[in-house]
Computed example of a mutant assay.
Amino acid sequence: MLLENKNAIVYGASGAIGSAVAHAFAAEGARVFLAGRTSAALEVVAEKIQASGGVADVATVDVLDEGAVEAHADAVVRNAGSLDISFNAISLPQTGIQGTRFIDLSPERFDLPMATYPKANFLTARAAGRRMTGQGSGVILTITASPSRTAVPLMGGMAPAWAAIEALSRGLAAELGPQGVRVVCLNAAGMPETPQLTEVYGLHADAYGITRDAFAARMTDLTVRKQLPTVAEIANVAVFLASDRATAITGAIANLTGGMIAD
C-alpha cells in the first residue's frame, strides 16, 4: 500500500473532496485524522472508513484558530508518533462570493475568501511544517482551482485567494525542502458531482441568463478531453503525491484540469 504507516490530517474532511481524499488515504494504509467544524459530519466519514477496514480519528478544529490547529497537530503527533501528510480541503458557501462582477462586489464579500482560504492554509501548513521539519520528512498538500491561472469573470475573491495559496505553496516548498518536507498544490477544474459546484455553476448560469446544464456544458467543452475531473481522480492523485513514489515532486502545481489549462 502506498501510504502504509503514514499519519495524515485532512482538514475539511466532511466535504466532498476532503472525505474522498480521506477514504483514499485510508485505503492505501494511512491512519487519517479527520478535522473540521462539525463533529457529526466527520463521524459519518470516520464510520465509513472504519467499515472499510481503515483507521480514522475525529477532531473538531476551526482552521482559522491558530491555537486549535497547533493543539490538534500536537495531539496527532503525541497519539500517532508522527505527522506525515497534511491536506487542506476546506470550503466556503459561494453565494454572494461568485457570480458578481468586481465593480458590483462589496469589500466584505471580496474579502471573505481572501481572508479565509490563504490564512487557513497558512495555519495548517505551518503547523505541519513545524512538526515535519523536526522529523525530517512529510508532505503538505493544498488544493486550488483553474481560475487561479486563467482569465475568468465573476469569480470575486476566489481566484485571487487560490493564486495566493499557490504562491504560499511554492514558498513553503522552498523553505521546507532542505528539511525533507515536500509541498504540492493540486489545481483542479470543477468536479460536477460536488454540492459546491452545483451551487457555483448555478450562480454563474444565473449571471449569464442560461441554465446550469448549459453552463456545465460550456465548462466541459473548455477541457481537452471534453470531460471535467471527478472527485475520485483528484483523490487518486493526492494519494500518489503524498506517497514516496512522488519524492521528486515539490514546489509544483499539479494540473488536474483535464486540459482546461494547458501547461
Rank of each mutant, 00 (worst) to 15 (best):
G54S: 14
T144E: 03
R131F: 09
L64G: 08
S146D: 01
L256C: 04
G156P: 08
G67R: 12
G12C: 06
Y201I: 03
F33V: 04
I253D: 07
L241F: 02
E175K: 08
M114R: 02
L172G: 12
A26N: 13
G129M: 07
R130M: 15
A145E: 09
P160D: 01
I165E: 02
L222V: 02
L168P: 06
S82G: 12
I17M: 10
V58I: 14
M158L: 15
V63C: 11
G99Y: 08
P192H: 03
G129H: 04
N5S: 14
Q94E: 12
A252C: 01
V76T: 12
R182M: 07
P153N: 08
E233W: 00
I103E: 15
I9D: 01
W162A: 07
T250Q: 03
M219L: 06
T198K: 12
T144K: 01
L176E: 01
F33Q: 13
N88E: 05
V63F: 08
L83R: 11
M132D: 08
A189R: 00
K119H: 06
H204Y: 15
A24E: 13
S86R: 05
G209I: 11
G29M: 07
T124G: 06
K6C: 09
R182A: 07
N121W: 13
N5I: 03
A161Y: 02
T95M: 06
R218V: 04
S39D: 13
V76G: 10
A188C: 10
E43D: 15
K6E: 08
V239S: 08
G209K: 05
G136D: 12
L256A: 03
L197Y: 11
G171F: 02
M132A: 07
S91T: 12
G15E: 07
